[in-house]
Design a protein around this nucleic acid. Structure first.
Lengths: 195, 195
DNA sequence: TGCCTTGTTGGCAGTTAATGCCAAGTAGGC
DNA sequence: GCCTACTTGGCATTAACTGCCAACAAGGCA
């Protein structure tokens, strides 16, 4: 354990993150400069960029870790489970592993209200999607469609993420008062149920 | 008609676009600077930014026009047609209105391979989605789901775009040898058909 | 305890995309 | 031919990044 270095790093990261989120909420994302965040967090601009490669990572940074968790969770679902149910189980785990709802709400609003942030957020999610495709592909019965199983998996994963995204947006719009998992189920039903 | 201005503008835009796409293909997007494009297209950097607000617009620029066309097309579908079919009709019109397939393929590859470009592309598509939601909402039968019709429309539009995106990516991966509309139908079937 | 290796920090200069401003030029109406 | 309207290009500036280097702190080792 590289104890002190490790620990002071954690402290610095948290301080930067808190400062950044506060300033973004107060002044808006575009109006807040890296210089200001660094100044108020008591760190040099250069070091801030070492912790967070880009300004967007201050908001979307921990997505990397969640993506890994999501993939592992989906993989570990019982073999008989359908692709849809496995993905839904993964989504559920992410929900509980996420920030406290108060901050998650704040971050979601920030992301959905700031085009460049939303774009970056979607881009990170696209990487999750790519990693999930082989996992889902393994779960598909092989007689079900004309489409190559790989493409079929791609479409299913993309649709699930579209529902996750839509549900999250609705959730943020309603200030978190509606259960996110419920919203997801309803979005999926709107897409998959005919008639 | 503001003839000469209008015409020379068209010429300039086309020259810039050709130069840019060529350089992007040769050296990659990130490695090509605005200064180089301006120099080789014989225009000042300042004017280039007047024609195309951002570097990304050199690739994703004409999306604006397509979004407008998409919305109008979907609106004009017969009243009895389902939301899904209306969206599919819109998609089909866009396909025919797009660039010649050779260039469309090149642009698609560029977009899918360049994270910052893909982010911007997604951002534009999200704007199309937002504009389509009220149009689709008007087309929904009101007894079909627990979800508020607005949310239902949002989910459907998001899912359709997920399929469009997936189909386009597959199409680019197969060098345009598979029909894009077919791919779309198959993606949608993979998502909507149960069993 | 005192050194030495190793990894961290901060400042500085430089690059690139993007924006505002102003002076110079050019098309088109009179 | 002149005047107005609009466009163009150069200049300065900002903000996000990146590379480089010198100062420094942590932890191991004698």
């Amino acid at each position: 354990m590289t104890t002190l270095w490790e620990r002071s790093r954690q402290v610095a990261v948290q301080a930067i993150l808190d400062t950044a989120v506060r300033l973004f909420a107060e002044q808006g994302y575009e109006q807040t400069t890296i210089a200001q965040i660094a100044r108020e967090a008591g760190i040099s601009q250069r070091s801030l960029f070492r912790y967070f490669g880009t300004k967007e990572d201050l908001v979307c940074g921990d997505q990397e870790a969640l993506g890994e968790l999501l993939k592992r969770t989906v993989e570990q679902q019982p073999a008989g489970m359908s692709a849809w149910d496995a993905l839904r189980a993964g989504f559920e785990v992410i929900l509980t592993a996420n920030h406290p709802p108060e901050r998650a709400l704040e971050l979601s609003r920030l992301i959905f209200d700031t085009p460049s942030l939303r774009a970056r957020y979607v881009e990170k999610r696209l990487r999750w999607q790519a990693e999930l495709v082989p996992v889902i592909r393994a779960r598909l019965g092989n007689g079900s469609g004309r489409l190559a199983p790989d493409a079929q998996a791609k479409a299913i994963v993309a649709a699930v993420f579209a529902c996750i995204d839509t549900a999250t947006e609705l959730w943020a719009e309603h200030d978190g008062r509606i259960d996110l998992a419920d919203l997801y189920d309803q979005c999926l039903a709107a897409v998959r149920d005919h008639g």
